[in-house]
Amino acid sequence: MSETFDAIVIGGGVIGASTLFQLTELGCRKALLIERGEIAGGMTAHSSGIVRTHYSVPANVEIARASLAMFERFRDLCC
């Protein structure tokens, strides 16, 4: 018997993990994350991981502020 999924995310770095998180927030309960190595073991693990909030384009400022707010309450969002 084969199992089916509503979504399959390939890559367990920051983009793949975020995609899976957002899918579950939207109600997707049959999602699969596929990673050939360790989760966040590729480029995500080697990035500086800065959170920048200073931009000259107003839309980028709004996105950065929303991202920072989410980052600050991440434990409440996922745990």
Rank of each mutant, 00 (worst) to 15 (best):
R65H: 13
H46G: 15
T4P: 01
M43W: 10
A45C: 10
G27L: 04
H46R: 13
V9E: 00
E3H: 07
G41Q: 02
S48G: 15
L77C: 13
N60D: 15
C28N: 09
F71H: 13
L77Y: 12
I50R: 07
L20G: 04
G41S: 00
G16F: 07
C28E: 09
I10E: 02
G41V: 01
E35L: 01
A40M: 08
T44C: 06
F74K: 05
S56Q: 11
G41Y: 00
A59E: 14
A17E: 06
I39V: 11
F5I: 07
V51R: 03
E38L: 11
G37T: 04
M1K: 09
A17I: 15
K30P: 03
G27D: 05
T24M: 09
L77D: 10
L68H: 09
H54K: 13
C28S: 09
A31W: 01
R52T: 11
A66H: 06
R36W: 06
D6G: 10
R52Q: 10
L20H: 02
H46E: 15
H46Y: 11
L32V: 07
G49P: 04
A64Q: 06
N60K: 13
C79F: 13
I39A: 08
E72W: 01
G16Y: 02
S67A: 12
T24K: 12
G11Q: 00
A59G: 04
G11L: 05
L33E: 02
R36V: 12
L23K: 00
E25S: 12
E25T: 11
A69I: 04
A45N: 15
G49D: 06
L32K: 10
F74I: 14
R52L: 09
V57Q: 12
A59N: 08
L26Y: 08
R36T: 15
T44I: 01
G13A: 01
S48W: 09
G49H: 02
T19H: 00
F71M: 07
C78Y: 14
S56F: 09
A31M: 08
L33H: 03
Y55A: 03
V14M: 09
T19E: 00
A59P: 07
M1V: 14
